[in-house]
Amino acid sequence: MSVIALPTQVQRSIADPVNRVLRKLPAWPLYILGALPPAWLYWAALNDRLGVDPVKEMEHQMGLWGLWLIIATLTVTPLRTVTGISLLKFRRALGLLTFFYITLHMLVWMYYDVQFLSQVWADIVKRPYITIGMAGLLLMVPLALTSNTWSIRKLGRRWRQLHKLVYAVAILGALHFVILVKGFQLEPILYMAAILVLLALRFPILAKKRR
């Protein structure tokens, strides 16, 4: 039991029934559900349902979804530490969906927003928030490629180390949001704060076993 965890008795009474239900649920429907929002968004854009600026709407929606998903991914471990509820079997889907959404976010930006390839490259090199966003996406590539049972077996210990990269990805993603807005705005700072809290909950001093 860790310092931040609820007492064992409380954990049992909450987590056990929840985990019993979760154990029966398969993870694969998440991939299908995850494909729906982008499909809907694209349909809405083509049919003039996204307001005055459909391109920004698609771009922002995909970016925000990516942040929500990475926050969900990072919540799995502390949720288990604190409450005993285990969403571990859904974590791979959450991580892969994060990658999928952020890839779409980048494609919308490239194809619909910037449009000119020369300017895409110039932006990546010259605009810090884009450099940072792109770095975050690139760091996700090895994680996505190794998000399968075969890689976990093959890489063993190194798999866990490699996948700690997700912490950097999350910080880069939130930073990308913080520095792209104009003026002092609260929303991106809340995302950054959420991510930092989720990472802090992993510090040994908080997460270590009591005995």
Binding site: A45, L46, V52, D53, P54, V55, Y111, Y112, D113, Q115, F116, Q119, A122, D123, K126, R127, P128, Y129, I179, L180
Partner: peptide, 17 residues
Amino acid sequence: RWSQATERVIGGGLRSR
């Protein structure tokens, strides 16, 4: 943080710059 060389044309469809 961004180039000012081109602009997106609001109301001009999905790929208007």
